[in-house]
Computed example of a mutant assay.
Amino acid sequence: MYRNSMPALLLAAGLPLFPSLCMAATDEVTGPQVVSALEGAFGVTPGERRNHTKGTCAAGEFVGLSAGAAYSRSALFSGVPVPVIARFSLAGGNPEAPDTAKSPRGMALEFALGDGRLQHMTMLNTPVFGAAQPKTFLDLMVAMQPDPATGKPDPEKLKAFRASHPDSLAQAKFLEENNPPPSFANSSYFGIHTFRFINQDNRTTPVRWRFVPQDGEKRLAAEELAALPADFLQQRLIERMQQGPVRWDMVLTIGAPGDPEDNSTVAWPENREQVKIGTLTLSAAMPQKGAACEKINFDPLVMSDGIAPSDDPVLHFRSQAYAASFAKRLGGL
């Protein structure tokens, strides 16, 4: 079974999965197509996710602030603690991906709002994504198919992909210039897409969010990166939470007229208004096998009243691809 270790630059588009429910721009790409391409690039581990396969579970709670309620009527911002199941992960379909890889880290959250209501958030530790359209991600996976003669991706195909898909370059540049964190607890995680917050007065505000670690943002030095073993992130997170809870502040960035709402490869200007709207507290971490996060399909379009998607085609596309991957997992494939 082929396992693609994928060079740092090429993991740039490594968000979980993602296909579409609407939008003509995504008609040419389907969820099953993307899942098949991921399988071709990384191989298949039966019963496991096709992307962000390597992961760790965690649990805790979220407490929203009244500052969030000013923008959204979601129960997230009631001020009442909301139970959370979390999953941390590495991009790509290799369950043995090295934790030293200069690839995206993910944090997925499921908030239990009561009465069976849920809110999902699936995030990356890069401020932008590596594809403005689903086809860019599909084309990357196709370019990464191993050459039968070498068992590795064809460098010329990867070079051609980069030259023909400029929307993949901003995230790749960020990954190249920023070493990975020494712990999942020392990274910010970005919602990547634009969302719409709707308050009690039905006022809609375009927003982007991120979770900022209270333990501080840290990056491995080059020497540390070279000396670390392939697996350290899970154990470090478990040990850190044994010392006490780990917290992230949820920070909202308020969009202004002209800010792109349908392109997650373009960052908003840094001078936009930013508001702290809650705190995520995780108190326990554990291996994902048999734990609560393992079977969850963290579909980013599972949203509570007061939070709605933008028209970002990649955001909508993800839901279909997640479903295709989830169906295979349920079938033990």
Rank of each mutant, 00 (worst) to 15 (best):
S72D: 09
D311L: 11
Q274Y: 02
A25Y: 01
F161A: 08
R247Q: 15
D147M: 02
G60P: 07
P148N: 02
E156M: 13
I198Q: 14
M107L: 15
R219G: 06
E261I: 12
L11I: 02
V84R: 07
F298V: 09
S74D: 09
L38G: 05
N297C: 01
D259E: 04
N186M: 07
L38Y: 06
K173G: 09
N178T: 15
N271V: 07
S188D: 13
K218A: 15
C22H: 12
L333R: 13
A172F: 05
D154F: 12
A41P: 04
P148W: 04
P19V: 13
P104M: 05
A230P: 03
A284W: 01
E156N: 13
M1P: 02
A226R: 14
W248C: 10
P206G: 00
H316S: 10
L233M: 15
T265N: 12
N51W: 10
I238E: 07
G331N: 13
N51V: 01
T136W: 03
L225H: 12
N186A: 12
M6G: 01
D312C: 04
L280C: 00
L17D: 05
E61A: 14
Q171N: 05
P206E: 09
D215L: 13
L225A: 13
F18H: 13
M123N: 11
T45H: 04
A284Y: 07
L38T: 06
P287V: 04
F184K: 04
D99T: 01
L76N: 03
A69D: 00
T26S: 15
S36M: 12
K289M: 00
V266M: 10
T265C: 14
A69T: 03
N51G: 14
G114L: 13
T122D: 11
A8D: 15
V302D: 01
P46E: 00
N263A: 03
V246T: 02
Q288T: 07
A37D: 01
S283P: 00
T194H: 01
N125K: 07
G306Q: 09
F62K: 05
N297S: 00
L280S: 03
P213Q: 04
A58H: 05
P309I: 04
N199V: 11
F18P: 06
A222D: 06
N179L: 07
A291M: 08
F184G: 10
D312Q: 05
A291V: 02
S183A: 14
G93P: 02
S164E: 14
G258D: 10
S103R: 11
G258Y: 11
D139N: 11
A131M: 12
L330M: 15
G47N: 06
R240L: 08
Y2W: 11
T30I: 03
P19K: 10
P166K: 04
D299V: 03
D215S: 15
S319W: 09
A226Y: 01
D312L: 05
R272D: 09
A86E: 00
N125M: 03
E294V: 04
F137D: 04
E223D: 15
R196E: 10
L330F: 11
H165E: 12
